[in-house]
Design a protein around this nucleic acid. Structure first.
Lengths: 147, 147
DNA sequence: GGAGGCTTACTCGGATACGCATTGTCCGAGTAAGTCCGG
DNA sequence: CCGGACTTACTCGGACAATGCGTATCCGAGTAAGCCTCC
């Protein structure tokens, strides 16, 4: 079990957007180049972030993406859910005649508890917290490319 | 991101083995029937559990699987690792020229922390705890099939 | 010099291709217990 | 009876097929800004 690389790209990209000067956009090209992936694929990932409401895009010359929400309000969990979906990461299936159950599968119960523990951490952590601690060279890159 | 169904099967199967009378084996057939999957596929999953040392198999007539370790010592995490492998569930990749880093990627750091929170729960929970709370109908099934 | 058209630089979205892990099947090999048959 | 061969009930493991999902590319469509041209 692993998180998809799309999640990785989404998290990184959204951090880049955080440090862009307010009101300025970052285009797909610099974002994709920076992360070594194609513009086409990144724009597909961004479409999910737009749909989820973290980001908006402006088309046309000097277009690009920019945040729509304050970065302190964006948790890791929200971004991950936007990309990965919101299904539980373990599903007992209950195909057995008599699953190992009391009320609901006991195994499912343990797995759910574990998942909640992870989610709690991810909900506490915001994009802003990470952006704050970023190095200067990243900030310089963003300032250079923002428009 | 989801856990594979193989993990589900492995966890259920190992709980069934826990409640088998000491020294008795459970064959692949009843275990597979109970969970609605083919014997061939289940035996493939069991091979991993054997390799990991939770279970041993006896071939030949009246053969089958039985636990080799006390169930109180088997955590969920160990079983999951045996099936899924031990890689971290998030890998930043660091393909960027200047990943978002201070020492190591900051995003990776948050994800690792979240993963550890989940793992901690899974390490605390043992198969024995779940088996203890199982319903009578499951126990009856196992007693009937054990040999 | 102003309005309208052209070019250019972008994002959007659908269609499609590829690769790989998961899921699953098939079958031959090996093995142990129980059975049968000949001495 | 007693031992050896036969049968039967199992697991093991490799080879393979199918499926689905994540990853990725391509391209036409739409759009906004700036420029250029022509009246």
């Amino acid at each position: 079990m692993k998180y998809s690389s799309a999640t990785n790209y989404a998290l990184h990209t959204i951090v880049y957007l955080v440090i862009a000067p307010a009101g300025k956009s970052l285009g797909v090209k610099p974002l994709a180049d920076k992360q070594n992936l194609s513009q086409a694929y990144l724009s597909k990932i961004m479409a999910k972030l737009v749909k989820a409401g973290f980001v908006e895009s402006t088309v046309g010359v000097n277009g690009g993406y920019r945040l729509t929400r304050p970065p302190e309000s964006i948790s890791f969990m929200e971004v991950i859910e936007a990309i990965e979906g919101e299904e539980a990461l373990f599903a007992c299936g209950d195909t057995h005649e008599h699953a190992i159950r009391v009320s609901g599968c006991l195994i499912q119960g343990v797995m759910d508890e574990a998942e909640r523990a992870m989610e709690q951490v991810l909900r506490e952590r915001t994009i802003a917290q990470v952006a704050q601690r970023m190095g200067e060279e990243c900030r310089a890159f963003v300032r250079r490319e923002a428009q």
